[in-house]
Simulated assay, not measured.
Amino acid sequence: MRPHTTTRPRALLAMGRHHRDALFPPEEIRRLAEYVDIDPDHVAEDLAHEPSLPEVELLITSWGCPVIDEDVLARAPALKAVVHAAGSVKHHVTEACWDRGISVSSAAAANAVPVAEYTVAAVLFANKRVLDIGALYREHRAPLDWSRRFPGFGNYRRTVGVVGASLVGRRVLELLRPYDLDLLLADPHVDAAQAAALGARHVELDELVGASDVVSLHAPALPETHHLLDARRLSLMPDGATLVNTARGSLVDTDALAAEAATGRLHAVIDVTEPEVLPPASPLYHLPNVLLTPHIAGSLGGELRRITESALAEVERYCSAEPFRYAVHHTALATSA
């Protein structure tokens, strides 16, 4: 929180220029200039040689922001806060920032909204077998006996397992709650009562993957979550189940998923992969039971306006000496994205 003063703090946009153009078009830059002293035509893509850095009190960052390390901080004695107009701050906010006591805010909550919406659409389409039926209808161009081809298809009383009570995971549970679904949650940092408050039953991960018609991943990329869905856990999923991954590609053993999907036993909706982008020879591009999208679940196009609004509101709070609404806490980073 900034001490109350009558002067506008000096601010700097630090991000990729094309991200600045998408997030802060002229009208938003004008709004920003009402709160802070900022060069409206300048964006810093290299902080190591940024001449204005010694006077900057507030950094407004986004995708493509350079790392804010000890060397950068040594040249930024006035820096007190970072408002990140994107999700995770792990890529640029270093331990040196936390050691210095710099306040950090993130628009992760705003970015969680479209990811959760994409996920819910994937869940509902998966249980209804929309992609399969659409492909068959295109091929035959006539009605078929869908109930015979897909016995039990539909969303009524199907089981959806959410892995990770992250911002996105919680939003997914919230959006799925009105449907007639049985919701499971696996997260070692959540207990049964907390899961129940989110509308889900808390279970261990193996039980979740073994009982769910759709498994949706919302855990962070950490050493302990690397290949969380490996060959063994994928083999526990019921025949015909669907894996949805809008979190991090490293949560899934890509080779093991490709092997399972190649048999036709499992379906998958995959928005993030390891590596990203997959090599051209990957079978996941061609399998009819896999929907592969190029990391589009997060904020794109008009959805970026939600992130901009979140960041502008945080800048206004900072300038009014109010605490950030979406403050990032150092202690929470060990278990978050």
Results as ranks from 00 to 15, higher is better:
302 G>R: 14
173 L>R: 01
183 L>Y: 03
224 E>P: 12
59 L>C: 09
297 A>L: 04
272 V>T: 12
113 V>N: 01
268 A>V: 14
111 N>Q: 07
64 G>I: 04
292 L>T: 04
57 E>H: 09
322 E>F: 01
198 L>D: 07
65 C>S: 14
132 D>Y: 06
118 Y>T: 12
65 C>L: 06
134 G>W: 02
25 P>R: 04
259 A>V: 12
82 V>Y: 02
331 T>N: 14
93 V>N: 07
162 V>L: 10
96 A>Y: 02
329 H>A: 15
283 P>A: 00
19 H>L: 10
82 V>N: 05
117 E>F: 03
135 A>K: 12
279 P>H: 10
157 R>C: 13
320 S>W: 14
13 L>P: 08
268 A>M: 11
186 A>R: 09
21 D>L: 08
295 H>K: 05
270 I>Y: 00
62 S>R: 06
82 V>C: 10
85 A>L: 09
174 E>R: 08
142 A>S: 14
142 A>C: 11
332 A>L: 12
2 R>H: 12
114 P>N: 14
320 S>N: 15
52 S>M: 09
125 F>E: 15
171 R>I: 03
169 G>F: 05
306 R>E: 02
324 F>Y: 06
3 P>Q: 09
290 V>N: 03
296 I>F: 01
270 I>V: 15
143 P>D: 11
36 V>K: 08
26 P>M: 02
235 S>M: 03
325 R>Q: 14
310 S>L: 06
217 L>S: 13
